[in-house]
């Protein structure tokens, strides 16, 4: 009888181990991507007022959107672009525009986005907007850091790059003070990635995974 149970138990364990463990080690990969550019806005008083962003969608998703827009007449097209832009703006408000930013240790909060636009540029759909800082901060002698990522990692978001190297327009500063910029590539910690992956159940919902694959923009002002 003991043997009978031992056999049953062991096989039971094996079946469970075999069917569950391999899958908890695995994380989902992105199904699309966005190349972004950031223009850091500094006003005449040397205060950080906002982050002007330009998000370029990947060729396949751009094609799919442009296909639908091509079915429309010129007027309807403009209207459809505006409607899609409204929808993106609405969806992103809940997600804080996928942007985390800090000055020193202080996390920044953002005001409502009022300037935004969806347009076509070279076969790509581009979403451009200005993310205002809710309380402008002086940048003199300060270091601004930010990360922009889609939390579920369904979309990968990185500074626009050519051959792995970020292009010059990927991070710019517009203002009267002189600042140094740097883009620090992501260096994901395998342990944290796996923990984030284990929170998800199926391919499309791994909240928090995107964070670990985000690169970091750094602006150091004098």
């Amino acid at each position: 009888m003991i043997r009978w149970y031992a056999n049953g138990m062991k096989r039971f364990l094996l079946a469970i181990i075999l069917t569950t463990t391999p899958f908890t080690w695995l994380a989902a990969h992105p199904h699309g991507w966005i190349d972004f550019r950031v223009n850091v806005l500094i006003d005449n008083d040397g205060q950080l007022t906002g982050l002007e962003q330009r998000w370029q969608m990947d060729p396949f998703y751009s094609l799919a959107l442009l296909e639908e827009l091509a079915l429309l007449g010129a007027d309807e097209r403009t209207e459809a672009f505006a409607m899609m832009a409204d929808e993106i703006q609405h969806n992103l408000t809940a997600e804080q525009y996928n942007t985390d930013a800090w000055i020193g240790e202080q996390a920044l909060s953002f005001g409502p986005v009022e300037v935004y636009e969806l347009r076509e540029e070279n076969q790509h759909v581009v979403f451009a907007f200005t993310l205002p800082i809710s309380e402008p901060v002086s940048m003199a002698g300060q270091v601004l850091k930010y990360q922009i990522f889609e939390p579920t990692y369904f979309l990968e978001m990185l500074h626009e790059a050519k051959r792995q190297e970020p292009i010059a327009e990927a991070l710019t500063v517009q203002g009267p003070i002189s600042c140094e910029t740097r883009i620090i590539p992501a260096n994901p910690d395998p342990k944290l990635v796996m923990e984030a992956a284990q929170l998800g159940i199926d391919e499309e919902g791994e909240h928090g995974l995107g964070r670990y694959f985000a690169d970091t923009g750094e602006v150091r002002c004098q």
């Binding site: 080690w25 695995l26 994380a27 990969h29 994901p188 395998p190 990635v193 796996m194 694959f213």
Partner: peptide, 8 residues
């Protein structure tokens, strides 16, 4: 863990 990350 490293292998899993590498696969991603």
């Amino acid at each position: 863990q490293s292998l899993s990350l590498q696969i991603v």
